[in-house]
């Protein structure tokens, strides 16, 4: 890890402190490329780190991103925090929700709002449905209740 960037080091340190404070047994892995620093916690029983609807892990991810920006002053890469495959499972769940919403919007002929989700998750759904020309997607409402809407294409 000798060539780890300063930003990656900040993410690793922060994640270690959080995992420790939550009393979890987890191994931390940091990877990075030009766009993203990813901190992954491997282990069992990481439910406390993930939290209800991913609230806790999204909070850790937000804080890690802010800490990198503050600590390096010029590292603007995206920071992703993952635990036990949570992000991949969440993408699958979002894609299922999106498919259901498309069906409901086309059957009912009216817009279908999804549950409120953060900007990153709205982007996942939006991009997943980009090629489905029979529907259009847009966001409405105010944070933190902002949600993506799937509507029949006009």
């Amino acid at each position: 890890m000798a060539d780890e960037s300063e930003g990656a080091e900040i993410v690793g340190d922060l994640l270690e402190r959080v995992v420790d404070a939550l009393g979890l047994e987890g191994e931390i892995e940091i990877s990075e490329d030009e766009e993203t620093i990813t901190g992954t916690v491997h282990g069992d029983d990481l439910g406390l780190l993930i939290g209800r609807h991913g609230q806790t892990i999204d909070a850790v991810q937000h804080l890690a991103g802010r800490a990198v920006l503050q600590g390096t002053e010029d590292d603007r890469r995206r920071v992703v925090i993952d635990a036990a495959g949570y992000r991949a499972r969440r993408v699958e769940a979002l894609e299922r929700l999106a498919d259901d919403a498309v069906e409901a919007a086309l059957t009912g002929g009216s817009p279908v709002p999804l549950e409120p989700m953060n900007a990153a998750e709205r982007r996942i759904v939006h991009e997943y449905l980009r090629d489905r020309t029979e529907v259009e997607t847009y966001s409405e409402g105010e944070e933190p209740d902002r949600c993506l809407v799937v509507a029949p294409a006009t």
Binding site: L22, G51, T56, D58, H62, L63, R66, Q70, E143, P144
Partner: peptide, 25 residues
């Protein structure tokens, strides 16, 4: 401003993470 964040998002994140630590204790 740095610990509160836009729309209070950073303060909310601080609360969420410390609350998880409280659950552990």
């Amino acid at each position: 401003g740095k610990v509160i964040g836009r729309n209070g998002r950073t303060a909310k994140a601080l609360r969420a993470v410390v609350k998880a630590a409280a659950v552990h204790e």
